[in-house]
Nucleic acid binder design. Structure first.
Lengths: 255, 255
DNA sequence: CGCGCCATTGAAACCCATCAAGCGCGGTGG
DNA sequence: CCACCGCGCTTGATGGGTTTCAATGGCGCG
């Protein structure tokens, strides 16, 4: 096998391979290999033929798309996430481009192997369906987030989600540069600055990558987080028995 | 079986059941029943527990979502389309509400049966994965459409897509009321009117539901349709051998 | 006939992007 | 050590796209 056992085990324990038996797992990752990429490397461009399923093990990756000289960020991924699974299942072209934001380690699984595993083992195929369904629902959440909330509301909810994921303390550290965060939230860096200053009324203070909260109640009154849009609860679910209920790769990974 | 044979055959021939063997098909739709709904009936609200996969056989259905007294339309479905498949696979709550726009016939398939069929037959499970992947890609296209194009460009591309689907003639008939169309395209009815008048420069004339084209070339120069966003080619693909390459239920069904 | 709903048009307000300039900080090189 | 530069972040001014509010006209239907 072309990948180290440690990597294989890591993938297996943190992705939809979790419940596969050994035989199916080996079928599905047959020919897979681990690759390291520097920052700002284009892994895939829109329209490219997709031969591999990508599994991000280390680093971070931005999924984006362009049209007529405009570009937009669709998602930012952190480990462990799969991407372009849908294109692999359909043997189709990529609808998004993928670029590393940092030095990254990515496991590349041949599409043929994955599809063969799905067709030979119904339980594994079902696990892939669950992953796809989770991705789908992540996108639905993202669309709702963008169409129903303005930029300040999106930022407020993002901050509350981060706070929950970082332990609920009154200070968090932003996991991305502000300009990357702005792209993720669907706005310009300028407007992210302005959104932060609008939130100073609500007890939000910013110092570099550190963000402090002095009045979460009033911030929540503005943000009105909703389990039908935000994913505060994903972590809880993952720590419970159930495997991948919506560990979405999707937009607003907010990782 | 609680549904007529004619209905069963129709579902079977036009959805992801197409390639299933008889035994799997019967397992997957066990307990299914056909139901008729009048217009403007709420089938499902956001947050509801999802017990059934819905398959729209006749009529049309709007998928939408709300937050803080705002509402948005995410998709408009026409026959034959499945919906809330992702929630069924994950045994999860609905992220969107579903409302009939006209009198509709809907086949309701128990989620248990569908999941059992997927787990018992890998080929069927793979077909469901293909359907989910197509839905996912439909959403990706929709997000790109909304984030990369302004409202006039979205309308122009919608019209070109309709024209292609209606046979490429120089007159089409809009399949929805204009206010429904506006919601589908992510704008207000007022702006749809203004967008139409901006397109009169490009040879687009409107008379009620009939839209005429006198200069498709210049309209295409504005619209710049792209196979990575629009779905002009879905029909061609469907008439070719391949089963469901992206017959998306998704947003911008544009049916 | 008249009521209601849809579509259209205009005016004002809002959100956001763009353009432009300035600030702060870290790294480099003199 | 310090001047300089680059880059990310911020702040202000301007403009464009879109929503909202309001008013009007058209059409179907009771």
């Amino acid at each position: 096998m072309a990948i180290r056992n440690a990597d294989a085990e890591r993938v297996r324990n943190t992705s939809f391979f979790r419940d596969a038996d050994d035989e199916t797992f080996n079928t599905a990752i047959n020919g897979a290999f681990l690759q390291r990429f520097p920052a700002n490397t284009t892994l895939l461009m829109e329209g490219d033929t997709v031969d591999f399923l990508y599994i991000l093990l280390e680093g971070s990756v931005e999924l984006g798309a362009g049209w007529k000289s405009k570009d937009t960020t669709l998602a930012i991924l952190r480990p462990v996430s799969t991407f372009i699974l849908a294109a692999v299942v359909l043997e189709s072209d990529a609808l998004m481009s993928a670029v590393t934001l940092e030095r990254s380690e990515i496991l590349m699984v041949p599409g043929d192997s994955l599809r063969r595993g799905m067709k030979e083992n119904a339980a594994f195929g079902f696990a892939v369906s669950e992953e796809l369904a989770g991705c789908y629902r992540g996108l639905v959440r993202s669309i709702k987030n963008h169409k129903l909330r303005d930029s300040t509301e999106r930022l407020a909810n993002y901050l509350l989600t981060q706070r929950a994921r970082q332990g609920g303390k009154d200070e968090i550290v932003l996991p991305h540069e502000k300009r990357v965060l702005a792209a993720l939230l669907g706005m310009t860096p300028e407007n992210l600055s302005r959104a932060f200053s609008k939130l100073s009324d609500k007890g939000v203070s910013v110092d570099g990558a550190r963000v402090g909260f002095s009045n979460v109640t009033v911030l929540e009154r503005l943000a009105r987080p909703s389990p039908l849009i935000d994913n505060h609860y994903a972590q809880d679910r993952n720590t419970l028995g159930k495997a991948y209920t919506e560990r979405q790769q999707g937009v607003l990974d907010q990782g």
